[in-house]
Design a protein around this nucleic acid. Structure first.
Lengths: 354, 354
DNA sequence: CTGAAAGCGCTAACAG
DNA sequence: CTGTTAGCGCTTTCAG
């Protein structure tokens, strides 16, 4: 038997053309049936390519013609009510305009489309809580945070988030390892006094993991100067905050040679402050950012940055979500993807200073 | 009478809490009715705060309790089928990850939510073509481009796009004027040889307008050196292309003193190339970008950029769309918003050269 | 090979 | 104040 989503796609294909003239009242299946002189059941069958039940080629043609003539377009809502399937998956995130998030949008949509599903991006949980709107959801949220109430959604769900260990129903990567990777990279270049630029951050985001990874890695480098953490909010804008924090630190003297920032905006702010102070990157100070966004790529010098596998994670999440939906199961096994480091021009050996 | 969307919101509020335990089969209105010992009509009425028809406080309480007990959540699909209203509006765009687009997302969503509507972002027209999914749509597309087939959608629709004159069902700004504004700004600083950095672009985007505006403005400045247009694609990446084009032009000699780019990515590429060539911005060359995205803000020096009113346009579009939906009319009057210029640090008087 | 009919879960007259 | 009853447009047994 043809899987339903194929059928669905076929139907879409059949009917996807825009109206020549928007009709007063959209044609319904019943209209087509009347026009073709058959029953709605038959119309439904041919328009859905439900050819398991064979149909006389001649009636089939009559029906297709009628549909065409009436500019029939299926009503997605009615169909969804009858089938209990919307063939759309939700992608929930609070950060729709974040460049990090942007990296996963394309892959998720592709993967979904490939399987006959549509994507609905939503920023409020309401869309997920009322019944029937979507068949499943990808959540950019912390699966261990009970407070969000995402744990008990009535639809299959897969999280995409950072975690130290594989979690069920979650595609993860390890930000602790990511931060450590950055520090390790800097250490390998010979840096011993590496600041952690964290700015201000909530307790429930991904930053605590990065802080932890930073600390652990710092204490693991031989001859390390120990953690040097820059915190605080001098501006509500990340870029600005990175700039201000760095400038402030610079005024207090400089006994560090490298900066690891928890995201690329902060890193770019630091880069800017350094340049304005006449300090050369990477000759005098090295920097590594986080998330490997467009910001890192277009910085000058282009910044090395920790690449979280959010794009692959999204694709994987989409694939497993559809799989869960079609298996009628809420369970999808967790998987952890490795983080990497994209090397660019912002790291070098520390300068010898007198 | 309470407007329906308020009612809708109330209902959402009532039922928004997540399941303690996701039920085997979600409770329906009928379940609640049975549990409370009343009819579905009554349940529907109280859960929708349809208190135009008064209801005994006691039965009301019985119903609310029953709903609570059964963890009832309305089925959005069934409701939509019955009311022929989904209370969601679509935002169609091809450029979901573009920073220019990002500027309108928040305002659109806010405006919609304020009116009791939900936002569905979509990149494929299919979502708009199948009946019933959304009540209306905001289209980031050229309303004069018939080929896209958006002209004849069965739902109320408002475009957001650049146009020289107000168009019906469209919130516009004028990119011709925007480009002219940039050129005028540069000219006011004393520049006479102003290049237009256009790179490569399709015939059907907004760029042709910018080119036209650039040319018109150039020819209007007294003593102008005439248009100097940089075209071509040295890289598929805009930033890279701006860089490469500028570097190439630099090698051929420099008899211009300012650059106007059709977007901030291109402008940043030019800025980079200039710096790498040791040319100071704005001391030796001035630059103005377009769209006033985050890119312009975080450039060094921060770049002046033409600000298109896409955020206000989005908000306005959302407001008029909802209005059209509730008026059951497809007509919304067009409006043109002014473009402005955000001044930063990338413009100055041209250097005197020997 | 085709049709009749029973829903999907909810809303909205219309009676009482 | 509350219940009955048609639908909304489509899918899907189950008969024929």
């Amino acid at each position: 038997m043809v899987p339903f989503h194929r059928v669905f796609c076929n139907m879409q294909t059949l009917t996807v053309k825009p109206y020549a003239q928007p009709p007063e009242r959209p044609a319904t299946l019943a209209d087509v049936a009347r026009e073709a002189g058959v029953s709605v059941a038959t119309v439904s069958r041919v328009l859905n390519s439900k050819l398991a039940v064979p149909i006389t080629p001649e009636t089939e043609q009559r029906i297709r013609d009628a549909a065409e003539r009436l500019m029939y377009r299926p009503n997605a809502i009615a169909r969804a009510l009858a089938t209990r399937r919307t063939y759309t998956a939700a992608l929930f995130t609070q950060e729709m305009t974040d460049p990090h998030f942007a990296q996963m949008l394309g892959p998720v949509e592709d993967e979904l489309r490939k399987r006959g599903y549509r994507l609905a991006v939503c920023t409020d949980a309401e869309g997920l809580l009322s019944e029937g709107r979507v068949d499943g959801a990808i959540l950019l949220a912390d699966p261990t945070n009970e407070a969000q109430g995402f744990g008990r959604l009535p639809i299959p769900t897969v999280f995409v988030w950072s975690a130290r260990v594989p979690l069920p129903n979650c595609v993860t990567w390890d930000d602790v390892a990511g931060a450590a990777l950055a520090v390790g990279h800097l250490a390998a270049h010979g840096h011993r006094a590496i600041v952690g630029l964290f700015g201000d951050y909530p307790d429930d985001g991904t930053t605590p993991d990065k802080v932890a990874g930073y600390r652990a890695a710092i204490s693991a480098v031989p001859g390390s100067a120990g953690p040097i953490e820059w915190r605080g909010q001098l501006s509500s804008d990340q870029f600005e905050n990175g700039f201000l924090l760095t400038r402030q630190a610079l005024e207090a003297g400089r006994e560090w040679t490298a900066i690891f920032a928890r995201n690329d905006f902060l890193a770019l702010g630091a880069l800017r402050a350094l340049r304005h102070a006449g300090i050369k990157v990477p000759d005098e100070v090295s920097i590594v950012g986080y998330n490997d966004t467009v910001i890192a790529r277009i910085a000058d010098p282009a910044m090395s940055s920790v690449l979280t596998p959010i794009a692959e994670a999204g694709a994987l999440a989409a694939a497993s979500l559809v799989d869960a939906i079609e298996r009628r199961s809420h369970a999808v096994s967790g998987i952890t993807l490795p983080v990497r480091l994209t090397e660019r021009k912002s790291c070098a050996a520390p300068a010898h200073r007198g």
